[in-house]
Design a protein around this nucleic acid. Structure first.
Lengths: 232, 232
DNA sequence: ACTAATAATTGATAAATGTCAACACAAAAC
DNA sequence: GTTTTGTGTTGACATTTATCAATTATTAGT
């Protein structure tokens, strides 16, 4: 094994770290590499469509995507955003083999698709890898619990504050960021109507908590925002 | 191995089937049996308390429990009910080792507690078992997605209809059932206030969709209920 | 059986939030 | 450069829903 090979953590010699992939052995990595497809997506393109058969694990090398489910009356709920280093295992795996959510690009994206078979084999034969995957799943479950609390107990300002904090802390990793999300997207992330989202954002701006200029957002008072989010 | 041993699927010679436990080999079953504690709970008792360390897998041999998370302002969200044959793996496993939800008995219960260590070992060494556990986790994730749609897009009648259908189909397995859930519990399951739940139930009763007598509920028009649930 | 405590119910009210319509603005197409 | 199309914004309004207070059942304790 050359030094270069050691740095590979899954797909096509890219040097992005994917959680748990460091547990894979040489053969498994080879299988991953062998099955992989390098695919580029443009902003707005659908990567996974809810209801289709799931055949790949999607690894994100570059760019941002939204993961969302279809709700009622053509409304969507954005479960989360995905960025470099994230990978998506459809919860259809080992159940009905269908995708239970859609994923679409919100920026230009570089991805690496790994076949479900290679992934399944690694999961079955490598218990340290399997442990990481379960760990990941448990985190997803915990996140969904928080989401349930957000959506059922918090009022609009709390939910929107939550979304802004999520974008700053988890996604853009800066309190000043430019987003490619539309207002509708941010509304779908907060479970409010587009109009309500805009109004809450306006309130935050008038209160000096945020500076907003189109899609450029800056958090001026993180503490206040956090407080609004916690109290609901 | 005697014939009797063959029928054991996990805890203390009880003949309850637990999903995935049939994948366990003799040694693993022995380890499960060795670590197990047979515990009886009374209605109202707390089995798992959110925030505590998770040290057991809880297998339900008899009775019903509610699994819930603490939300804001002392309000709870009941994620689901548990019954005979269900077992609970805390999503703290492999992450922070803490319980992220509480579980309490809503009837007298017989349970069997298996140590996390025995479970973890089986998960690590038995890939067929691990596969079933991931499968279970994926189902949990999918259920939470549905829950999110229920809570964010459906209005009260839709959410309550959903709860009644859930109780009839998944829990009591009959369109006529007696529940030990309080009105507050049913409200927490539907993400509405107790008063609102009562009003919606009253409407359903007046419309002839349900017959209600205290905690005795009968679904008269399943189709209507289903329709209310789907439309939201 | 009587009292206390808890749970269920009802009505009135206020708060939260979605919907609709109109309009502004920006990007894309011609 | 003008039209078209999509997105963002605002205001008025109706609906949904929680909250509060009061009342009635029900259950548990003595």
């Amino acid at each position: 094994m050359t030094y270069k090979d050691k740095e590979i953590t899954g797909c096509n010699s890219c040097h992005i770290k994917f959680f748990g992939f460091d547990m894979l052995n040489e053969d498994e990595l080879k299988a991953f590499k062998h099955s992989h497809c390098k695919v580029e997506y443009q902003k707005g393109e659908t990567i996974i469509k809810e209801g289709t058969r799931c055949s790949n694990i999607i690894c994100i090398k570059q760019g941002y995507a939204k993961l969302y489910i279809k709700g009622l009356e053509n409304k969507n709920i954005i479960i989360k955003l995905l960025k470099q280093g994230d990978f998506i295992v459809s919860p259809g795996l080992f159940t009905d083999n269908l995708n239970h959510f859609s994923v679409s690009a919100i920026t230009q994206m570089d991805t690496c698709l790994i076949s479900i078979d290679a992934f399944t084999n690694a999961y079955r034969n490598n218990n340290r890898f399997a442990e990481q995957i379960l760990k990941l799943n448990h985190q997803i479950t915990n996140d969904l619990y928080s989401q349930l609390i957000n959506f059922s107990h918090k009022k609009m300002p709390g939910r929107v504050a939550n979304t802004i904090i999520y974008l700053a802390e988890n996604i853009y990793q800066s309190r000043k960021f430019h987003t490619t999300l539309s207002r509708q997207d941010m509304a779908d992330l907060s479970s409010v109507s587009k109009e309500s989202l805009i109004r809450v954002l306006k309130d935050f701006k008038e209160d000096g908590i945020l500076s907003i200029n189109g899609n450029q957002i800056e958090i001026n008072s993180f503490k206040t925002l956090q407080n609004i989010s916690h109290v609901g």
